[in-house]
Amino acid sequence: MEKECIVLAGGLGTRLRGTVDDVPKCMAPVAGRPFLHYLFDYLERNGFSRVVLSLGYMHETVERWAASQVRPFRIAASVEPTPLGTGGAIALAAEKTTGRQVYVMNGDTFFDADTDAMRGVHEHMGAAATLALKPMNDFSRYGTVETDDGGRIRTFREKRHCRHGLINGGIYLLDLESGLFDGLGGRFSFETDVLQARVSGTVLGGYVSAGYFIDIGVPEDYRQANADFEAMFAHDEKH
């Protein structure tokens, strides 16, 4: 069975303007390489066989870079004709996938979660979607995700200061035959119109991982990613 992932790589990176050059957010340079390079390394380590890049803003830049990559997985591109929101982008890119299960990853976050263990949770629960969740302490930038004792997601909370909690780590496993997108089309938000709107009547699983997490969407964390990745991947050969 194919192990497929959609990478949401169409973001403009408006909050990084003035910090990085005018490039798609996934191509922001981190420790000397495009951020997408590290996501590709992660996908390679996790045994993916096919990757669909969901593109929009400056898609040619991403496509040129992707064409230069020599990877053990096949790479395809799905280009939004107009901005479709995260949900519309996933639905469009899913047309280029082949199986019932597909992972989805945000192109501006890196979360070192075990995708095979995540699939085990997903299948055990019979979930329509499973989210990789990251435990965090003393934060206010992210909303929180609350689960019951069995790991089923019950509530999504708005951003507020929390002493500790679980956040959405930006990796999902979807069952494309579950009806998750039924009644939705065109432009819509995956987070709001699917996850939050359907949490009460849909089995959404939570897979908790303590793996390294960073979101480069704001300058402070972008700078932190540069420092972290320089330390973590300094031994890798630059290419």
Score class of each variant (00 low, 15 high):
A89M: 03
I90H: 06
L92E: 04
L92W: 00
L92V: 00
L92R: 08
A93F: 00
A94L: 09
A94S: 11
E95F: 09
T97Q: 08
T97P: 10
T98K: 11
G99Y: 05
R100K: 13
V102G: 06
V102L: 08
Y103H: 04
G107F: 05
D108I: 06
T109E: 01
T109Q: 01
F110R: 04
F110Y: 14
D112F: 00
D114H: 10
D114S: 11
T115M: 14
D116I: 14
D116Y: 08
A117D: 13
A117E: 15
R119L: 12
V121C: 07
V121H: 01
H122F: 04
H124N: 12
H124R: 14
M125W: 09
A127T: 05
A127E: 01
A127F: 04
A127S: 03
A128D: 07
A129V: 15
A129R: 00
A129W: 06
T130I: 06
L131F: 12
P135D: 01
P135H: 02
P135F: 04
M136P: 00
M136K: 04
M136D: 07
N137C: 13
D138V: 13
S140Y: 11
S140A: 14
R141H: 12
R141P: 08
Y142M: 04
T144H: 07
V145Q: 04
V145W: 10
V145F: 11
V145C: 07
E146L: 11
E146V: 15
T147W: 03
D148E: 07
D148Y: 01
D149P: 09
G151P: 09
G151N: 06
R152F: 12
R152T: 12
I153N: 03
R154L: 09
R154F: 09
T155R: 13
E158Q: 14
E158G: 12
K159Y: 11
